[in-house]
Each structure stands twice: as structure tokens, then as C-alpha cells.
Design a protein around this nucleic acid. Structure first.
Lengths: 266, 266
DNA sequence: CGTTTGCTTGAGGCTGTTCAATACCGGTGG
DNA sequence: CCACCGGTATTGAACAGCCTCAAGCAAACG
């Protein structure tokens, strides 16, 4: 399998030093037994340098990946080479969600910054989902949250102007990077993305992204320089982004205890 | 709750005559006990006339809806009134998937044709998901399939030209309506949508949809008249649509037995 | 230093929008 | 029977948003 081969070439990291026990599927906190089981199914933790292909469109499914640190981009490539960044991945992001019956993955994942990825067998993860109802609920919650984001993203791509689309994306990324909603005005939020990447995620050319960013700066809405985003006027940014506050809050790092399966014992 | 009020005004249908035991969550076929439980949690089946608002953005979550017949459109509305059709719903489509923590739904659903909708409490459905592992797996499979479609849809909106986006949408709808992949050339597939609706789903104006449809007809790719789609040149349609055959097959009506939880007893 | 990568700015052109007008078609009421 | 009507489809002309191509610059890096 191509992905396994690529990953096996990367340096290893000791699983026990994994810094991400409070992210992704491990959140909200649960029993030590469950965390131990989650650690046990790990095939390894790999460090991918910038631009490294972590997973390639067309690979066979079978591995579940969790991002432990860094930023990566998931993108879908068309037969003629055009590509679209469907989402940015960072601490806690789960790369999986291939429905049974799909023979080839349809997304590639590339590291943007140096990225640590935890690799596990999808089958083993599924077994744990069956064993721990709260893990299953958390898994479903992550899928549902992504579906909600997809609705807003599609609406943004279809209906918003270039400037609005940029505002939408940057506000979403600011909330995720700062782990806070609403984000603070004036705070410098690390966001190590290039204008070209923002273009690939918004369906704009890098040239036009640059123009729109400059305009946003002139209007006093935000600045985006040398990998840091600074929100200057949150009210206007939100008005342009046209994003639902309730949805943004889902990405702010708070992880409501899922109730989907709370009718179960324990 | 607004949705419950609206639905309660609609005529009822006897649950026992429900025609959709082979669709959506009920597929693939499983034990009589499970089907009986699924029928038991129904609050009712309602018939919505064309243009009827089945569910409104901002409603409290709590009801799970399954479309039994007809066509409906799910759309997201922006504060300034612009709206985007995120997906078309037909037999078997599940309307739910609100992550816990989201106080207001972000999608409205409107009937396009006369639409029969099965209403059930989300809580009751969740209890059944916990009781029947295969139902849970089916539920997750539907979410994952939608996520895969969302990836293609976002890529189409961001990267494809107007004609290509139309081709993409019509091919997807053709597969769903004909329940077959690949669809047959020359077959007249009922698709009761207006050009304005296609525009709202592709991010184009109805005027431009009209021009692109005429061009597709001139080029001998397809015709779309009086609610019927006819594919004339499948090869060229697929080349324009830039859609993954594996993904299209997921929507063709075949429902692979989910393996997500097959490590469980039974 | 030369190369690469990312950012910035200008000029011109294409895609899709906007506004407008016309035609069509089934239903409704005079 | 025809006039009228709302909803849909169709077509034209002018406009605008975003793209393409091109050039120049700064910082990082081998």
C-alpha cells in the first residue's frame, strides 16, 4: 500500500510521548482503560516534513490517521490536475471516514508544516468503537460536525464573493487555531498558510487572494502577515464571513459530552 | 417547536403502509424485530405539498426525518437572504445529523414535489442505534457517504466551470434517480427540478443554467425538458462532470453490508 | 550569491451576472 | 370560448468580478 510505504520511511516517535491525549477522539476525557486501548492499537507515530505526502488519493483505505501536531491540507484532485483543498488539518483532526464500498480514497493529505501523525489500523479502531459507546459517539460527533461545516463551506463557495469567502475561511481557521470563540481582536494567531493555499481552499487564484487580503487590511478588518493572523474588527469580519456562531463554537475546542448514546449504561 | 407545528398540520398517512422499508436506514434488510422497532418509534408520516416548508433553519434539533417519496431540497440561508441548496432529498434520504452542541439547525428543507416524510424522535432513533449495531453501522455509513459527496461537491463548486458544474450535478442526480450506475444512454429519467433549483444548487443564476443546458443539448451530451433528463453521450458527460465512478456507485442504490461493526457478535 | 518561494501590482480579457423583454403553458374565471 | 395569470423557459445586451499573463521585489536557503 502506497501510504504505508511512504509513512514507513518517516522517522518514528515514541507513542508514549504522544502529546495529543486531549484532542480528537480522546476528547472528552474518559477512562484510563479506554485511553490505554487507544494507545495500544497505534501502529506508530510519524513525523512528516513540510510538503510531504501523508496520504495519496487512490490509496486503498484501511488506515486511520490522527494529526498530533502541525498543519496539513486535505485536497481532492481532478483528472486534469486541478485540485481543491477541502479542509485544513491540525491537532486532533481525524483522517478516515471512508464509507464501506469505496475502493479508493478520494482525498490526498499533504503536510504544510512539519506534522506528527498517529497511524492506526481502521479495523482496530472500529473494534474499539464497538467496545466503547462513548468513543463511538465521539466518532459520530466528529463526522456530524464535519457535515455541518461542509454545509457552510459549500454555501460560501457557491454564494459568497471572493472577499467574503476569504473572510469565512480565515474566521473559521482563527477559531480553530486560537481554540476560542469568539476570537480576540488584536491577538496574533499563528496560521502558517500561504496565500496560494488559501486560494486553493477558496477556489480563487493566489493573485486574487492577495488583492482581497490587501483590501481587508485597508478596511481595517484583519491582517495576515508572515504566518500570523490578526483580527482587527471582529464585528465586520463576522458580517462578511456569514458564518453561524453556533457552528464556529463547535470548532473552538470545547467538546460537549456526546449524548447520542447516553441512554446506554455508564 | 416550529417544525412540529408545521408538520402537525399536514395530512397523516398510516405508518403500516409505509412504502420505504427498503430504503435509507432500513437497508440492507435485517431482522423483523429491528424493522418492527424502527416502525414503533415513528411519530407519524406526513405528506408535504410542493413548496411546503418541512423544516426551517433555526429550529431546535430533536426530530429525525426520513423521506419516503417525492423530492425535496435542503438549503442553507445566509443572513442577507442568499441561499444555497446543499442537497436534494428523495426516497431514503435521512435528515438529521445535528452534532450535539448545536442549538439551532442550519438547514431548511422544502418540498419540491409532493413529499412523504416519516417523522421520529431523534432520541428514540439514537436508542435504537445503541441497541442494533448494524443500524449504527448503517447510520455511520450514510454520514460517511455524505462526507465523500461533500468533497466532490466542494471541489466542483470551487474548480469547475458552469457547464462542468451542471454536468456534475445532473450526473449525480441521474444516478440517484435511475438507481443505476452507470446510467443508460437514451433513457428518460424523471427529475422534477426547475432550472432555478439547479442554479441554486450550483451557485449559478437560472439564466446561465439555461444557457449551459442549451449548450449541452447542442453538443449532444444530454437533454433536460419538462422534468425529464436524458443522457445522450455518457462518456462526454462523465468527462465534464469529473466525478469519481466509485463515489457515484455509492449512490446507485446498492447498499453494501457495512463492515464497520462486523467484529461484533451477530 | 544564485535559486527558490512567497508576496505585490498592473493591464487586458473571459466567464458569468444583471437587467430586460418575450414566449410558453396549464389553470382559472369571465 | 377567450382573457388573464403565475410560474417557467428563453434570448439579448451591457456590465462586473475574477482570471490570466507579466513583471518586479523581498526573504530564505543551499
Amino acid at each position: 500500500m502506497a501510504m504505508a510505504q511512504i509513512l514507513s520511511l518517516l522517522p518514528r516517535m515514541d507513542c508514549r510521548t504522544c502529546p495529543a491525549r486531549h484532542e480528537g477522539l480522546c476528547q472528552p476525557m474518559r477512562s484510563e482503560e479506554e485511553l490505554a486501548d487507544l494507545a495500544r492499537i497505534r501502529l506508530g507515530v510519524r513525523i512528516a516534513p513540510p510538503r510531504c505526502v501523508i496520504r495519496s488519493q487512490g490509496d486503498e483505505p484501511g488506515l486511520a490517521l490522527v494529526v498530533l501536531s502541525g498543519w496539513a491540507a486535505a485536497f481532492h484532485t481532478l483528472p486534469d490536475g486541478r485540485r481543491h483543498i477541502t479542509r485544513f488539518l491540525t491537532v486532533g483532526s481525524l483522517i478516515d471516514a471512508e464509507p464501506n464500498g469505496l475502493v479508493h480514497t478520494i482525498e490526498s493529505v499533504e503536510a504544510v508544516t512539519e506534522t506528527a501523525v498517529c497511524v492506526q489500523s481502521e479495523e482496530a479502531l472500529n473494534a474499539l468503537r464497538a467496545k466503547y459507546p462513548l468513543l463511538e459517539a465521539r466518532f459520530v460527533w466528529l463526522l456530524e460536525r464535519q457535515l455541518v461545516r461542509d454545509i457552510e463551506r459549500a454555501t460560501a463557495l457557491a454564494q459568497l464573493s471572493a472577499k467574503e469567502r476569504l473572510a469565512n475561511l480565515l474566521l473559521h481557521l482563527a477559531v480553530r487555531a486560537a481554540r476560542r470563540y469568539p476570537p480576540r481582536e488584536g491577538e496574533h494567531i499563528p496560521l502558517p498558510l500561504t496565500q496560494a493555499l488559501l486560494g486553493e481552499a477558496t477556489g480563487l487564484t493566489a493573485v486574487h487572494v492577495n488583492r482581497m487580503l490587501r483590501q481587508l487590511t485597508i478596511e481595517g478588518v484583519l491582517t495576515f502577515q508572515s504566518g500570523r493572523l490578526c483580527i482587527l474588527n471582529l464585528r465586520r469580519l463576522e458580517a462578511m464571513a456569514a458564518s453561524d456562531p453556533g457552528v464556529l463554537a463547535l470548532f473552538a475546542g470545547e467538546h460537549p459530552e456526546p449524548t447520542a448514546l447516553r441512554t446506554l449504561p455508564n
